[in-house]
Nucleic acid binder design. Structure first.
Lengths: 340, 340
DNA sequence: TATATTTACTTAATCGATTACGTAAAGCTA
DNA sequence: TAGCTTTACGTAATCGATTAAGTAAATATA
């Protein structure tokens, strides 16, 4: 990997590296003739400026990090897409780090990110993250941090979320209107801000429609698919079994469908199913599933834009630092009223 | 972002930066006492070595790039997972670049990667990539390149693939055994090595079972879902309509299911469907779909391992540079013989 | 005791690009 | 023509970490 450096160009043209540098950046105090000569040779020798060197000198790496819980989840995959689009357009590079929902891993990753490698950070925290000490450290050091989806409020330089509360409310309302009276809510840990919000929207809808929220309706799942499947099956065997299930997380969709199949409960006749999910296959499931589709791509774009603006030191209107992009309620057969 | 540098430590301890550097790297010619003092202060001041500076000096960035066509595809999402796992364990950072299946974008991205930013490259080429000139340039410059899934043969330092030929053969054989005699094969462009291989496996199975391959059986799709859906629908309205469809790419599954639904052809009674796909939802589709599941995670891991070994300069046994990890044929209802 | 070796550092160069500052030559003004 | 400005470049420092080479003091060897 012996690349052409400015030194090579300088020697070949009998100039100093300073002149080369200025010529390449089109500085006013280099003659047009010299600029042409430098550019020509640079092209011929395929000169490529050395990233680390410029970074070191210029105190900017043109790189941002995206720290997310996982990637094999449609939401995050689409969010990456949005981030990459904006970053690429602005000449930024994107580092990906996966926490696998583990706080310790999140801490370890962030600790390394204060080393000049990145100019800014996009993060969606783990389910275990309850306090923001480790993130605050980066913020305190002056690193621009933008949260998306799973946020800590008022810590970083921006937050991009969706209207989880309202979406959840609307979905619950829809189920009630389809005749459901005993709606279960599947969730992981309720520490996560978005899950809390979704839960509240759900509860409020129940309240507004005169339904009673029962703690039995809350099914707290773990990271183990099989265990979750058993948990849901058990609940479906209950005498007071639900007539609808809302999966607050995409990951829980598959075990829910499986559990219903194993218990021979037909969707939507006996039980209705809906989920917060970005599954491209939602429309070809058995039956097609009603989802709250989060604007993952758009959220990724918004978060990246906000971060890059901040990095560039543009004054960002405080009103712009909290972006909320609405989710879409996609009604499908899994929640349709069954009329004989 | 004013971080603590070695200079700070040096001044505080009345030592030279050289001593600090050596103390931190536990060099033999620094006294234990001094090492302790340095380490203690470094910890107290939360000294973090500056990545660009070490990179510049040490000619290594501890970063690899992963260039893939897209991320909102289960295969690549899972592959990222595998890559990140290995990279993280070895202290490597992962840059993500999306080509969106555009050769021009691929070229533009690669051009930038010769700037010292990365120590190695993992790539799965676009559907448009027919010649490897742009990749060869990196290889010629000495950058370790490992291909995975979509490869150019014998160019880089390694190739990680799956047994597409055999998997395709087995799937086709399975369909024939289920009574199919007119099997369509959906594909994008046939320039792509893996698609070619899959196509050959399919053709060979037809041949071995005395079936005739007809060019009508080849449906060449584009990047537009709606157009593809129409294409398939049209084919399904044909007098010689297929009794089975193999989607050689995950992306084509949804339009295939939709087209069948719109034409009121029931799966698997009237038509059988199978696909090369890593959809986690395959088991809850309507009906559950037979898939060839590629070992995406494992392939990501293998590719990253191979790349990192090469970067570290370990002599890699030539036999190890071509890794083939078998796919799994997951039989489900969508291809099951329908018996009344 | 004179010399050799070891110990524990420091000096200074280096990686490659950038930039404040310096300067020689040319051009301009009075 | 003396003095000023402009043009077009070079010198050297800098970013932060690393390392070959140098050195003074302490210790060991003959």
């Amino acid at each position: 990997m012996k690349n052409i450096s400015m030194k090579h160009l300088a020697k070949a043209l009998n100039l100093s590296t300073a002149t080369i540098s200025k010529a390449l950046s089109d500085s006013y105090d280099i003659s047009d003739e010299t600029k042409q000569r430098v550019l020509k040779l640079a092209r011929e020798l395929r000169y490529i400026p050395h990233a680390q060197a410029s970074s070191l000198r210029g105190k900017k790496s043109k790189t941002i990090a995206m720290v997310i819980p996982e990637v094999a989840d449609s939401y995050f995959a689409q969010a990456i897409n949005g981030v990459e689009k904006i970053a690429y357009a602005d000449g930024f590079h994107v580092l990906i780090y996966l926490t696998h929902e583990q706080l310790e891993r999140e801490k370890a990753i962030l600790k390394e990110l204060l080393n000049g490698r990145i100019d800014g950070l996009l993060i969606s925290v783990t389910r275990q993250s309850e306090e923001a000490y480790h993130i605050n450290e980066l913020v305190a050091a002056g690193l621009p941090v933008v949260f998306f989806d799973r946020i800590f409020e008022n810590i970083g330089r921006g937050e991009v979320t969706t209207n989880d509360y309202r979406a959840s409310y609307l979905l619950t309302e829809h189920l009630i209107q389809q005749g459901c009276r005993n709606i279960d809510f599947l969730l992981f840990s309720n520490a996560l801000s978005i899950i809390k919000t979704r839960l509240e929207g759900y509860k409020q809808a129940l309240l507004d429609y005169g339904l009673i929220f029962n703690t039995e309706n809350l099914i707290v799942c773990s990271n183990h698919d099989q265990e979750n499947e058993r948990l849901i099956q058990y609940r479906l065997g209950h005498k007071n079994r639900p007539d609808a299930i809302i999966a607050s997380v995409e990951k829980l969709v598959i075990c829910t469908y499986h559990a219903c199949a194993l218990k021979h409960l037909s969707i939507p006749e006996t039980i209705k199913i809906a989920a917060f999910a970005n599954l491209p296959t939602a429309s070809i499931l058995q039956p097609p599933m009603t989802t709250i589709t989060q604007p993952a791509f758009e959220m990724g774009q918004a978060a990246a834009s906000l971060l890059i603006k901040t990095i560039k030191g543009k004054s960002v209107d405080p009103a712009e630092t909290k972006v909320i992009i609405p989710s879409k309620l996609d009604l499908r057969k899994s929640t349709m009223l069954y009329t004989t």
